[in-house]
Every structure is written in C-alpha cells, then in structure tokens.
C-alpha cells in the first residue's frame, strides 16, 4: 500500500517544477499581446520570425559550435575516463573527486579565470613573451568560446563514461585476451562497444548545455558573435518579446529531443536493451 503512494510526492514535484513550466513556455510561444486591443491572442509569429535566415544562421552556428565542443570533450574525456577506470579503487575515488572539485566553484568565476589566462597580457602570452615568441590572439573569438565550453563541460563527459567503464566485468576482457585478441582489438571490439551507453549520455549531457549557453560566448567570446542562448536571453531581458523568446526555446527543445531520439535508436541497435541514462 505504502509503496503504491510513495511516488506521489515526486510526481507532484515534477508536475509543478517541470511539466507546468514547460506548458507555460509552449503557451507563451503561441500567444502575443495584440497591439490593437492589448489582449492576448493566438499567434505563431514567434516561429515565423525564427524562420528568417538571420535567426537560422544563429541557430546553425550554435549547433555547430556545440557539436565541436562535444566532439572535443569526447576525444579528451574518453582517455581520461579510461585511465581513471583502470586505476586502483582507492585512487579512482580520489581522481573522480579531483575531477568534480572545480565544479564546486562558481561557474562564472571559473569562466572569468580564463580571461586572465588567455588575455593579451595573460599568462600564456606573457610566457610566450619571455621565451621570445610573438603574442597570440587567444581571447574574444570562437576558439576561446570553444575552450570555455570544453573546460566547463568536460566532467559531464568523463563521469558517465567512467561509471560505465568501471563496471565492465574484467573477465570479459580476459576472455577476449584468452582468445588471442591484442590490446587494440580488445579496446575496439570489447571496451568501446560496452561503453557506448556512457558515451551517449556523455554526449547528451555536454551537447545540451553547450548549445544553449549564453554566458561563455559573452565572457570569452567578447560578445562578438551571438548564439541561440544569447538570443533567448535578449528576447526576455531586453526586448520583452516573450512570444519570440519562448518560440526559440521550444524550437531548441524540439531539436534536442529529436537528436536524443536519434541517438537512442543508435544506442538500441548497438546494445539491445541498454537505456540512454
């Protein structure tokens, strides 16, 4: 009996804090204050505006940049996860902690720190100056944004992959070795396929915040380019066009849902019944 009802508070919680706000966003994306009567009326103007080449360009740029960040996170994160997963158990815990440690600091602070590393008179350029090399333009461009994203979201890639890797049964690997597989084949045919669920949740967890971030492009990109997150922020905080702002958010949500869907199918094909999360 108790078991039957124990889920209810949770359901109520998600109704209030997840479902209801979602409905609100969709609602606002479909209504607009009429300039004549001052009343709310149905309008798909927000979606129409978004279809203009100007905004589509912003959208595509954001997606491409987020994809680059995700790919970089995977390339850097997978070896890290693999190395940690193969350490002694006590050391593993310590390394995982080290990885999470910077996340205890405020996100803004961590991003600001990069300004003093990459800046014209920053640490890197000062070092280059000392050894007699010309200074580099590292700050206020898309590369700086990319660095900021990879730095901030890397733990989201490493942790799920590490979790999956550390749970792989060692006997599976031994079996492969017994059957004559060298380490490269073990990696390709056993370890990587078994870690796909971790890779997929890693990709999702990096891609989602990367595609919608607006703080990193303003701070490290010097506001030189506008990404989809900035667009939403401006519509709500500057322009006050909630209709358009919500419409952008809904399009972004649908896009993310669709890409998750596609990845999940890929996951199922490779792994049978393995789940995304």
């Amino acid at each position: 009996m108790l078991k039957k009802y124990s889920g209810h508070p949770y359901i109520l919680w998600s109704m209030i804090f997840i479902v209801f706000p979602l409905i609100l966003v969709i609602y606002y994306s479909l209504v607009k204050v009429s300039s004549e009567t001052g009343r709310l009326m149905f309008s798909i103007e927000g979606y129409k505006t978004f279809m203009q080449p100007l905004y589509l360009k912003v959208f595509i740029k954001s997606v491409l940049l987020a994809l680059e960040a995700t790919a970089l996170c995977l390339v850097i994160g997978y070896p890290i996860a693999y190395i940690i997963a193969n350490m002694k158990p006590e050391l593993q815990k310590f390394m995982a902690l080290l990885l999470i440690l910077p996340m205890w600091m405020n996100f803004l602070l961590r991003t600001y720190a990069w300004i003093s590393i990459l800046g014209k008179n920053g640490i890197i350029n000062r070092f280059l100056g000392v050894i007699g090399l010309p200074a580099l333009d590292l700050m206020f461009n898309d590369k700086a944004v990319l660095i900021g994203m990879v730095y901030n979201f890397l733990p989201f890639m490493v942790l799920p992959i590490y979790t999956v890797l550390s749970k792989i049964d060692k006997s599976v690997i031994e079996a492969a070795q017994d059957l004559g597989a060298n380490s490269r084949i073990v990696m390709r045919k056993v370890v990587v396929p078994l870690s796909i669920p971790g890779i997929i949740s890693g990709i999702t967890m990096v891609f989602m915040p990367a595609v919608s971030t607006f703080v990193i492009p303003s701070l490290l990109g010097g506001g030189r380019s506008v990404l989809i997150g900035n667009l939403v922020e401006q519509q709500f905080l500057v322009v006050g066009n909630w209709n358009f702002g919500s419409a952008i958010s809904v399009v972004l949500m649908i896009f993310i849902l669709m890409s998750m869907r596609i990845m999940k199918r890929y996951d199922v094909e490779e792994e049978g019944e393995m789940n995304l999360w």
């Binding site: 100007l54 380019s225 506008v226 401006q234 519509q235």
Partner: peptide, 10 residues
C-alpha cells in the same frame, strides 16, 4: 533595434 543588433553580431 534588436533585429539590427542580432544582424550586427551574426
């Protein structure tokens, strides 16, 4: 204004 601004930035 906002549209012009997005065009400048994009």
């Amino acid at each position: 204004y906002n549209k012009a601004w997005v065009e400048i930035k994009a």
